[in-house]
């Protein structure tokens, strides 16, 4: 009766175990799967301690991650580390835990196509063995069905599930927080089995979790320092326990941006990129955005703002160049004359009717009319038409001929039609002039007849201050002039 009750630690009775539960918010930015010793570790089949890998990556908390081949160092299962897939299971079905690019947490069994999805790819992914909790329910029996080939592996797999040992697990709670867990132990002597671990995690509010590598691999590191009691003995002195050199590591760190340098266009503060300037946008500062109108489709958005196409101006390229200027930045002056409109892009002139030439400085050639003088006159008399309207009205045409006489001779002196029209015009003027002269002469005679000959012609003559003899005779010379 004096002997105390002694429980067998392997029969499920209460016993003490030590371990750590780590909860990380915003796991998209604060959680990483690391290759052993840094990038390229899986390809190189490196095996290094968790401390070494965690220190280099600046992990606040780190644990051993996926399974690996102990003799070759090969990473086993699917491994995606910071967006790079560095190991593939080749479709072998084991429990997976990962985070997709949009922050989605994924737990369970994945097809190869899902692992390789490019629309929303995994940025972190690690493979374990046994899906411990599925949507808040212990899922170990179903996992054995999926992950164990019963014909050859039942004994080994069953022992793996039920033996007490050091364990590690990875999962998340209902709020989307990531949960890392480990307990110390020694296979068959200390620690917990997977049933106990699943139930413990469930009670902590974890809803999905997978089991990662345990036994002597179970290692917990805080700020680069070993913080648990590994179960492997040391080679030099088996009184001491030494951390095993393992493969991948799961790591919780200060929130980081993706990419860490925000593509060179921003500053990373607690996992959030604060983009520089007014125009870099997006979670990773990779998008140039010049506002809702985005340069009004008349320019290119650059990191200094809208670079407007030729003919456009303003902060969002919404204004055309003012009349009189054109080109990039509206920097060039238009040369258009005679009221012609100037194209704001190329500076070309749109002539008003009756004008032509690059700057619309020239009037239409005879026989042509309209804007830019592109239309040929269609007058029956072969006379030139109105250069503005194309009208064949002779009066207006004659008026135009007279007003532009010099140009007419220069440009069309040799043309038969032009000469014909000029001849007609001059003949008409001659007739009008002759008629006017005849009328004048006849009118003058009639007037003289009315004076009855009461006049005398007296030529004015002055010689050395003396009047002509006739003037002397008549007295006052001024009176002799009657007409």
């Amino acid at each position: 009766d004096c002997q105390p009750v002694r429980n067998d630690p392997r029969n499920g009775s209460k016993r003490a175990v030590s371990g750590h539960l780590t909860v990380a918010t915003a796991p998209l930015h604060s959680f990483s799967v690391l290759e052993p010793g840094g990038p390229g570790g899986c390809a190189a089949r490196r095996l290094v301690t968790v401390e070494e890998t965690a220190r280099a990556a600046g992990c606040l908390v780190a644990q051993n991650g996926g399974f690996f081949h102990m003799s070759t160092g090969e990473c086993l299962g699917n491994i995606v580390s910071n967006g790079d897939q560095v190991s593939s299971s080749g479709g072998l079905q084991n429990a997976q835990f990962g985070i997709r690019q949009d922050g989605t947490l994924v737990t369970g069994y994945l097809s190869e196509e899902e692992v390789l999805d490019t629309k929303n790819p995994f940025v972190q992914l690690v493979s374990g063995v046994v899906w411990l909790l599925r949507n808040g329910r212990v899922y170990i029996n179903e996992s054995e069905e999926t992950e164990c080939d019963k014909t050859q592996e039942t004994g080994s797999f069953s022992k793996f599930v039920n033996v007490i040992s050091a364990r590690t697990a990875l999962g998340h709670d209902r709020e989307g927080r990531l949960v890392m867990f480990h307990v110390d132990g020694q296979t068959e002597q200390r620690g917990i089995n997977l049933w106990e671990m699943a139930e413990f995690l469930r009670k902590q509010g974890v809803v999905n979790a997978i089991n990662l590598d345990g036994g002597g691999s179970a290692t917990f590191v805080v700020n680069g320092t070993l913080a648990n009691y590994p179960s492997d003995h040391c080679l030099d002195d088996d009184m001491w326990r030494c951390p095993r050199r393992i493969s991948t590591v799961v790591c919780v760190h200060e929130p980081r941006c993706n990419p860490p340098d925000c593509n060179g266009h921003g500053t990373c503060v607690q996992g959030i990129c604060h983009c520089t300037g007014d125009f870099w946008q997006g979670a990773d500062c990779s998008i140039l955005d010049c506002g809702p109108s985005n340069c009004s489709l008349h320019g290119l958005c650059t990191e200094t703002g809208c670079l407007c196409d030729a003919g456009w101006r303003g902060s969002n390229c919404s204004q055309e160049c003012a009349n009189g200027s054109f080109g990039v930045g509206c920097a060039q002056k238009c040369q258009c004359e005679n009221g012609a409109a100037c194209d704001p892009i190329h500076g070309t002139c749109a002539c008003l009717p009756g004008f032509q030439g690059d700057t619309c400085a020239e009037v239409c050639s005879l026989g042509w009319y309209g804007p830019g003088c592109h239309h040929a006159c269609k007058c029956e008399s072969l006379c030139p038409c109105d250069p503005k309207t194309g009208s064949c009205n002779l009066t207006s045409t004659m008026h135009d001929i007279l007003s532009r006489g010099t140009a007419f001779f220069k440009e069309f002196g040799g043309e038969r039609t032009a000469w014909l029209c000029l001849t007609l015009a001059l003949a008409l003027l001659l007739l009008l002039s002759a008629a006017a002269n005849v009328t004048f002469v006849l009118g003058s005679r009639t007037s003289r007849r009315r004076l009855d000959g009461e006049y005398a012609y007296q030529p004015l003559e002055e010689m050395n201050g003396e009047l002509h003899s006739l003037e002397k005779e008549q007295g006052d010379p001024t009176c002799s002039i009657k007409d």
């Binding site: 036994g215 492997d232 003995h233 080679l235 001491w240 951390p243």
Partner: peptide, 24 residues
């Protein structure tokens, strides 16, 4: 005290050394 080398003696393996499972 320096980090010693592990004996790798606490092995906890889900599958036998030669894996026979096939991809699905």
């Amino acid at each position: 005290l320096s980090t010693g080398v592990s004996l790798n003696d606490d092995l906890l393996l889900p599958y036998p050394g030669t894996r026979t499972r096939l991809p699905r």
